[in-house]
Structures are given as structure tokens and as C-alpha cells.
Design a protein around this nucleic acid. Sequence first.
RNA 1: GCGCCCGUAGCCGAGUGGAUAAGGCGUCAGCCUCCGAAGCUGAAGAUCGCUGGUUCGAUUCCAGCCGGGCGCACCA
Length: 561
Amino acid sequence: MKTKIREMVLCAAQKAFEDGLLPFDQIPEMEIETPKHDGQGDFSTNFAMVSARVQKMAPRQIAQAIVDSISLDDAGATGHLVEKVEIAGPGFINFFLSARAWHPVVDQILEEDDRFGASDMGQEEKVQVEFVSANPTGPLHVGHGRGAAVGDSVGNILAFAGYDVQKEYYINDSGRQIRTLGTSVWLRLCAARGRAVDFPEDCYQGDYIKDLAQKVLETEGEGILEKEEAEAIQICARFAAGEILSGIRADLEDFGVVYDNWFSEQSLYDTGRVPAAIDTFKAKDLIYEKDGALWFRTEDFGDEKDRVVVRNNGLTTYFASDIAYHDEKYERGFDRVIDVWGADHHGYIKRIDAAVVATGRKSEQFEVILVQLVNLLRGGKPVQMSTRAGEFVTLKDITDEVGRDAARFMFLSRSYDSGLDFDLELAKQKSADNPVYYVQYVHARIAGILTKAKTQGLIDNIEFSRGQHLDRLVEDEELKLIKHLSGFREQVEKSAKTLHPHVIFTYLMSLASAFHGYYNRHKVITDDAALSEARLALVLGVKKVIRNGLGLLGVSAPERM
RNA sequence: GCGCCCGUAGCCGAGUGGAUAAGGCGUCAGCCUCCGAAGCUGAAGAUCGCUGGUUCGAUUCCAGCCGGGCGCACCA
């Protein structure tokens, strides 16, 4: 429809020029948009305003020239699709469409079903979205929850928008933190067997470490106490990381997140990719030695300072494996790599960007979604969280306490560019009137209507004669609803383009509002069979779009609540 | 000090150059003999942090300032 309007404007501009109403035939960048307010038509264009300078005329005069030259589309049996064109405000040209122009949207939804709203803007471009990637040294907490909700939804949205998406979790199963984990478990294990141990502060303090120690004893037997400490610690480390990781996996699944791939940091060492990456950079003279350590010239790529990849003790840094890791991603064939990080990691962006560029990729191929931090509260008071101290509310606690749908909603209802206060008391206590239910309620309500229609034998009519009576949809609320529905794909595209899932949420809220308003004013099932049929088709369309939209956010669409 | 993010009604917030600045919570007044009231209708409530600049037009872009959050390791 938009392209149709655009053509009309372009034709009119050409004609106006030929008729001498406009001095120049230049066509500037114009937009066809949906006006914000009622009474401003279904579409509008800023053509006149953006032409003001080239035409050297007042916007409203230009608009008049266009309107005078416009020829409406061919009138069908029931009249023009575009009913009226008028000039408003500083020079907007507003187009008013007839009801007939909107009716086919309902058919389209029923036809396309779970693909309605899908787009091909991605052109099957290969995109990887990596998110959460928490160290397997402890359970996931709220912050990870927000990252999980964002990453998962962004992946869903990009896929729906036509990208070839892979969701990946990077497992930091190598390095110092894992060793610390092993030591922590080992010491707890020793303590459990009566050995006097000094438990250092930099070890993980949580009770789950004690549980893990017990499990190691059960699995490995008492024999582990006889082993060399270094070996025992390694056994503990491997065991504990494996246990924690499967816990993380389970918690994410409960949260509705399923990955396409779990990628191990250790595998980069096993395959020699980390030293290989360092050697490659050395060959390009991107690495130099100073103070016994190896430094990567990230400053040459815009970073504040150069960064260490191999410490003076010979151990590689986390950054070194990240260089190899990101290189590996592109080698796997991804055109775009998107990392979802907590805002506290923002200082790391330039470093990875430098690595990406240094391996010959374009900076635009690497994007970071920085998710601002979550401030966990309980009854208005901050909850102190520290992995080390072992005091935290886990993602699992949150899923159990407020529910997956409500939690995901909380995380996705607003832009991740802002910090988020997550109050457990509030989320729980208000779960009954949490806005996510406002949207889900639409789905359940319509399910109820359809059930009723079914018992009256009306449902088969929709299936067999869809679209037959759509011309009966003439109420303002009905047309408003259809217009909302027709805008779904555009919102999906906007969300995919900006990588902001909350766009979908905002859309769903306003669609839900339009439906509830309609529902309260009009009966869907009436004595008039044809009218009922048309309205059932409409609400069925609403139901499908709600389901599709909620699905992108990883929120369920219940038949009953 | 430097860097990133944020500053929109009592509170939470949408808005990536346009016409009357969404929506939710809270407050006030109404709506269920009728497809689900987890709903609807109406009312009150905003100098869009401040000051300049760019533009026909700025909440939106730029600069400076103020306020808040987070970073600035041979940790991850």
C-alpha cells in the first residue's frame, strides 16, 4: 500500500511539473508514513516540506500542486481505494483509504498464519548471536536473565526478518576462574573430611560449592583424597564446571532459551587456534614484546592502549582466546557477529573490534548489544549480589518466583539502553496485573470466542469461506484493528534493524489495547451469520498476530488463563 | 581525569528530524441479567535536566554544562 501511495505522489509530481505547477522536476528523499493521530489519514507524506528548498516554494503551495495533479487509483465496483487526499499542518499530504483497501489484510493473515509478519529483509545473511556466555563457576543471576531474554529475542526477531541466525553460548571452560573453582571445591571437600583448611577469600564462597564437593565425593569416591592436590583440583574443576554448566543449560531452558550451539573456549586451545592467532598477528607485526609480556597493538585500531595477550608468566589472557574465538566465528561463515554483553564490559568493545578488523573483517560486521545492568530489589531495598560471596538471587529463583513469561516481559518491555530496577516483591505481588497478561489475555479471550463459535458451528464457515464477508467490517474499531495488524511486519523489520526487541512489545501492547477496545464495544458473534463470520475472521487474525509477536519475545500465548 | 549508557507527568517509561509527546502504575469518576472485568470509558497530571548551535521544523542531531549508573588489570 505504501509503495502504491509513493507511486501516486511521484506521478503527481511529474504531472505537476509538466503542467507548470512546479518549477523543477527534482524528487527529494521523501517519506510515506503512518500519521500518529486520528484525523490525519492512513498515510501521509512530507514530500512538500522536503521539496520546499529545491522548488523555492512554500510547502503548502507545493502540496496543493501535488493534490491538484494527483489521480486516484482505478475505482473498483465499490469505489476508490484512496478516498480522499488533503493538505494539513505545515504541508503534509494525507491520504485517506477506504475500508475496502484494508480488508485483504485479514485474508493475508489467515493465509500466512505463523509466517505473517515475516520479512525477507535479511536476505538469508548469516548472523550469529552470542549471549549469556557466563562462566560455569556459579548459577546464572538476574543480569544473565536480561541478557538471555534480549539475546534470545533478538535472534528470534532476526530469523523472522529473514536472517539465517545461529544462537551460541561461549563456555569459558579454560583459565584461572575454572582453576579457582576447582580449588574451591577441593578445599570444601577436604574440610568435609575433617582436614583443617584455610579457605581463601578469592575462592567461591557459595553453599553450592559444598554441594558440589559432596557430589564429587559420591562420584569419584574417597580415593580422590589420596591423589596429588593438583590432579585432585583438576578433577574437581572439570566435574564442577560440568555440573554447573548443565545447571545453567537447564535454567536457560526453563527460561525458554535454547541454543543452536555451545562453544568451548578450551577447544580453541585443543585445536591450537589461540597460538595460531597470535602467530598470525606476529607475522603482521601487530604484536610486540614489552616487560616480558606480548602486547597486541589495539591502539592502532582506536583502542585507548595496547592490550596484553600473553602475560609475562607465559599464560595467555582471556583476550587472546577471544581473538581466536572471533576469528573462528567468521571462518564458520557468519557475515555478522553480534555479542550481547553486560554494560560493565563496554570497555572491551574496542579491543574485540580491533581484533576483528585486524583479521581482515569490517568493523560493521561486529556488533555489541550492551545490556545495561539490572538492579535487583526486594521491597524497594537493594539485594546485594556477589558471586564470590555466594549471595545472590539466581535466574532460577526468578523464574520460579515470578514466572517465565512475566520475567521475560520485564526484561523486554523497555530498551536495554537503560538500567532496570527489578523488584522481586513488586514483580511477584503485581503478577496479576502485570502488562504481559494484558497481551496474553487477548489471546485467551479470543480463544474463548472461537470455542463458542465452534459450538455454534460457525468456525467451519471461517475456514471454508474466508474473506467472503470481510466487507462487513466497517466499524471504526474494526478498521483500526486491521490497520494495526497490517503494521506488524514493519515493526518486525524495525526491531530487526535496530536490534531492539522492545519494539515488538510496544507493538503488542497497542494491538492489545485496540482489541480490548473493540471487544468492549462490539459483539463478535451476532445474529447476523455473515457479519459474525467476518468478525471471527478478524479476531482470529488478531489471535495469530499476538501469538506470532509473543513468540518472538519468548512469551507463551495461552488458550486459557 | 578519560570512556560508554541514561535523564520525558508522583513513579516506570515509548518516541532515532515533522502536525495535538504513546502506554503502564498510582489518583479520581463511571461500565458486568450480554462472546472471559487479568477488561473498557472518561478526568486530572509534562517548562521532554540546563544552555547554546544546525534546520523551514529538534524530545530526536551537534557542543558545553549539571545529575545518575557502569567501566578504565600482565582478571574474566
